[in-house]
Each structure stands twice: as C-alpha cells, then as structure tokens.
Design a protein around this nucleic acid. Structure first.
Length: 568
RNA sequence: GAUUCCGUAGCUCAGCUGGUAGAGCAAUACACUUUUAAUGUAUGGGCCCUGGGUUCGAAUCCCAGCGGGAUCACCA
C-alpha cells in the first residue's frame, strides 16, 4: 500500500467526514466532554436508571432497524449501549439516527454518550442512550478481533511486526497488551513506594556522559556542537549515583534508561530500563534481604500473589530466596572447584567441559563462562549467586574473608539474571588499581573493559561511606511478572528497523514506452501493442496492469478484438 | 551473524503437481425496535513484499534482495 493511495474504506470514511461537515457536525470538536463514569465502574456497581455520561471508541455496531446496540471502549474496558431511533430523534427529523448514527459513524470513532444504566433482556448491563456526540472521527479501519460465545478469539491482531510498529492499534484492540503495561507501571510504582517509605531519594543523573562508565558495553556515541566534544549515551548510571552518596545522601535511587550499542533479540533492546539503588552503611548481605523483600512485595502488589507462572513453570517469589556462592554453584554443576585455580587450570577446565575459550580471557572471564554455560540456566527458582571472582567485578569491594573474591551477588530467576549488587568498593586506591587492571585487559584485546573516570576516583578520595548498591533490570522483571518471553512485549515501542516507504508513483521506462505507443496510435490492437513493445511476458503484464490501474490507458473488448486506448 | 519458517483484500487466513485469485470478519445498499461472533439478501474491494529468471503462461518453480518471527551464536 502506498502512502498516497487510499483504500476503499479510507475513501468512504473521508466521504463520511465531508457529509458530517455538510450537516453542520464538527467531526473534531474542541469543547471538553463532561465524562462522569467509566465502562468498568458502571458494570461493577450496577445501578438501574443511573444517569451517566461516558466517552470512548465505537467498537461494534448491531443495527436492527429502528434500534441498535453498540459497544464503546474506554480506558477501563467495553460497555454496551442501546440506541433507539425515536428517543434520539423525537420529532419528524430522523437523520441523526438514520444518517449520522447508522451511516456516517464508523467503528473506531470516538463518541460521547449520555443516558441511563439498565439491564437488557439477556441481562447485559448497558447504557440506554438519550444523547450522543461525535468526539473524533477515525479515518482508518481498525483490525477487529471478535470473541465468540466460547471465549475464542477470531481474527486476532497478532502479527508481531504490525503490533510493534503500530502499538497504538495493538493497545486499542488487544486488552491483554494494555494489561501488561499497566502492570509495568504498577511494578515501578510499587518499588518507588517501597524505597520512599524508607526515606530514600529518587534522583536523576546524566544520560549524556563524557565517559561511559559503570559497566562494560559498547556505547552509543554522539557529539555536542557548542562544546565540540564527543558525548556518550550512558551504559549505566552507577558512578554518578555513588558520587551522590559521597555528597552525603544516605539512600538514592534512579529508574534509568540505559543504552547499549549491541545486538537485539528477545531479551535485548538497545535502550532498556534499570533501577539502581545505593544505600550507605549497608553491605551486600543487607541488600539481599532488602532485594527479596522488595521482589516479594512487588509480586504481591502487581500480581496479587507470590506464585507466578512463567511458561509451564511456577516460580515462588516468596522471601527468603536461596543463597549459593559462585564456587558452590560451579562445583555443583560441573564438579570442578575454581578455588585457588590458576588461569591455565581454568582454561583446561573450560576446554574439558566443551566451552570455547580464547587467550584474551582472564580468570574472571573464564569463571564467568563456566557459570554462564553450565549453571545459570538451572536456577529457575529465585537464587542469589554470591561471591564473584575479583577480576570480573571492578567496582565491587573485596570479600572480607577471601581477597580473590568480591562481595557481590546476582539474583537469578527463571535461569536469567534479574538483579546485580555489591558491597561497593570505596577504597580509592584499590579502585584506581582495578581500573588500571581493566585498562591492561583492554590492551590485551578485551574491548569491553572500562575507561578510567578520574573525576569518580577524585570523589572516592574525598571519602564514600561503606555502601551497598543494587541494580535490577526492569524490563526483565516485568517479563517475569507478566509471563512474557520477549522484551518487545514489555516495551511500548521496541526498536525496529525503519519502515520502508511506500512504492514510487512514477512510471517505469517500460510503462512510459507503452504509453507513448498508445498515444501515437490509439486505439491499438492489444496483441499488436504487445508484440511492438517487445517485452517479456511478465514485464508486459506488470506494465499494462500499472497503466490501467492508474487510469492512464483503457482496455476495451469488442467481440474478438481487444484494443487499448488513452483513458479519458 | 547462522539455520529455518513466513510475506495474498482494512484484519485473520485458504489457494493442490504452474492456467488471469477465494472465505470469514470489516465496508457499501436494502430489510429488521432488547441484540451480542446479531440475522437475511445483494454489491464492491487485490502492483498476490520488491527485482530478475524459467515458461506460451508464475501468487505458485528458481535466484537475489527487503521486512518479520522462531531457534542458535554474540552481548555482564
């Protein structure tokens, strides 16, 4: 479909629009509409005869001569309305019903309705309309899924491409999609409340950063014209939140959009949402308690239960969660004990377990591979994996009992990482050394190692209290809570390849050539023209179709002879 | 990036071993004053994703491309 061409139904809707204007009805009125009630509210608190005013989209129309039923969809759901011709049009003039309601309104139009609540003979709560107003005309037909008596949905709007590209349509037509996003908002509000009750402060930190720190990922790069410097979209906000702890806040959190210039799939979108929280004078043990309580509460408030269903499995989000050290986890699933092992020994272990390695991998990366390949997917029920090797955690405090390890945990649910937390490294000298170690790794070829943020180090030198920080992937948490297996389903507007624009309207060379021949010798025998054009069957076919379609030439048949002429 | 499936009416989908496209819903017209996947009758609506090839003839077969899904790989 070209952008320039309108479908049959679109043309008809535009004609209806004109007719409405001719009748003196403004299809896009400016005045507010005094809504008093909503579909769901009316149905939940049925009151026979109650006066109501509501507004929404017209989603179905069942016209039965002088009376009609229709359905209106508002932000809360659908409700049926009943319209009677002689009540809408008490006098001789019946055009408001016969013309406007029956013909000029289309499915998808916004209308407002005043009337009284009643129950039909079949017992459906409906609104008996005394007055209706067109609030906004819809010029494109919506897809119209229907649900039958058995609750089966027909003609569902399911094509993922269309659903993601035109989310507005998806939301109108698929009630469960709306539900997912309401849950998403509830989950974030629930967390916000949990933090605010404890006196922590919601903050905002820069998205445009001169040094993309706090995580190792490829950043999106941009440029600031006035300063003439490169800037990066943040890959994390960790280093800024810690600066705020240095500044004296005791607890800060941010719901942050982060950006990573990497692949896209069902669990990765280039922009995604992370909640990070930092609390002074706490450690990672405290943070585990805090995290499990938070998750339990969010589940209760969003789903009304801590037993959630993900695919075929049931997951219990009731605190407390299991706690397993990384060493135990790897030992359990591979029989290999990483404790005190050299880099060579780890390489050998990976190899014997069928994990590919390369020489740029240090100890941290190798252990990460072992865990990622052999363990991670097994933790379906929520489990804190603790005590990560120091090489893979450059911002995390050294473990109080083992200098090879860090005080870090990741929360695994359904085999995937949901949250990540540390006792934050606040020793500025140690931190500098860790950054330098990262630089060495990066020189070795690991292009994900971090830049050194000198200003962050300076802030630590002023002194940061012992602090624990935690980050949680909001998109993935919402996927869990709403039983969705792809991130696109929990983002309103997931990243998509740009849509290709409509077909060109200019004629091709072949079409121009044929047109010239017709202009010269019209009317001309079709078979003669075909031979003269000298095109392959397919090219001929396409060209003549385009020409007739665009109304440039006309094919007329008289008995046996078919001739082509210029259309008038 | 690899493998694989898909792209046909506004929507959901048929279309066989090649012979100028079908259904339901939606639309248009008429009938119908409590229906609910309303109903009945009639009608209109298609660059069959794009480009090339094979063929007398391609929605159908072949090649290339574009877009999307799924699985895998990559990605803290």
């Amino acid at each position: 479909m070209s952008v320039f061409e309108l479908s049959d139904q679109e043309v008809q809707r535009r004609e209806s629009l004109h007719k409405l204007r001719e009748m003196g009805i403004d299809p896009y009125p400016a005045a507010l509409y005094p809504v008093t009630d909503y579909a769901t509210g009316i149905k939940e608190n049925f009151e026979e005869g109650k006066q109501v005013v509501l507004a929404g989209r017209l989603m179905s129309q069942r016209v039965m001569g002088k009376a009609s039923f229709a359905e209106i969809l508002d932000s809360t759901g659908r409700i049926q309305v009943y319209i009677n011709r002689d009540e809408i049009c008490p006098g001789e003039e019946k055009s408001l019903y016969n013309e406007v309601f029956k013909k000029l309104l289309d499915l998808g139009d916004f209308i407002g309705v005043k009337g009284t609540v009643f129950k039909t003979q079949v017992g459906e709560i409906s609104v008996h309309v005394k007055e209706f107003t067109l609030l906004s005309k819809s010029l494109k037909p919506l897809p119209l899924p229907k649900t039958d008596a058995d609750g089966k949905v027909h003609d569902a709007f399911t094509d993922p491409e269309l659903r993601y590209r035109q989310r507005y349509v998806d939301l109108v037509v698929n009630a469960h999609v709306k539900e997912t996003f309401i849950k998403r908002s509830k989950a974030m509000n629930s967390m916000r409340q949990f933090f605010n009750e404890k006196g922590y402060l919601e903050v905002e930190t820069p998205i445009l950063q001169p040094i993309p720190g706090g995580a190792t990922a490829r950043p999106f790069m941009t440029h600031h014209n006035a300063l003439d410097i490169p800037l990066y979209l943040r890959v994390a906000n960790e280093l800024y939140l810690k600066r705020l702890i240095v500044g004296g806040f005791e607890g800060v959190y941010e719901f942050a959009k982060d950006f990573r210039n990497e692949g896209m799939d069902r669990t990765h979108n280039p922009e995604f949402t992370v909640m990070e929280i930092y609390v002074a004078y706490k450690d990672y043990n405290w943070m585990m308690d805090f995290t499990e309580k938070m998750i339990e509460r969010v589940a209760m408030e969003v789903c009304g239960t801590t037993e959630i269903t993900v695919g075929d499995t049931t997951i219990s989000l009731k605190a407390p969660f299991a706690r397993v050290t990384m060493r135990e986890a790897i030992l359990h699933f591979t029989g290999f004990d990483i404790h005190g092992k050299s880099e060579d020994a780890l390489h050998a272990a990976c190899k014997s377990l069928g994990i590919e390695t390369d020489p740029t991998m240090g100890k941290g990366k190798l252990i990460d591979e072992l865990f990622g390949e052999k363990c991670e997917g097994n933790y379906i029920q929520p489990t804190f994996i603790t005590d990560y090797p120091i090489e893979m955690s450059p911002l995390c405090k050294r473990h109080r009992q083992d200098p090879e390890l860090t005080e870090r945990f990741e929360l695994m649910i359904n085999g995937k990482e949901i949250a990540n937390a540390y006792s934050e490294l606040n020793d500025p000298i140690d931190q500098r050394e860790r950054f330098e170690e990262q630089m060495r790794l990066s020189e070795k070829g690991d292009d994900e190692a971090m830049f050194i943020d000198q200003d962050f180090l300076r802030s630590l030198e002023y002194g940061m209290p012992p602090t624990s920080g935690m980050g949680i992937g909001i998109d993935r948490l919402v996927m869990l809570l709403t039983n969705n297996s792809s991130i696109q389903e929990v983002l309103f507007f997931p990243q998509m390849r740009p849509e290709v624009k409509g077909h060109k309207l200019e004629l091709s060379d072949n079409e121009k050539m044929i047109l010239e021949m017709v202009e010269k010798d019209a009317p001309i025998e079709l078979s003669t023209l075909k031979v003269r054009a000298g095109l392959s069957g397919k090219q001929w076919d396409i060209s003549i179709k385009v020409l007739t379609k665009q109304g440039l030439v006309k094919v007329t048949k008289e008995g046996e002879s078919v001739s082509v002429s210029i259309a008038d």
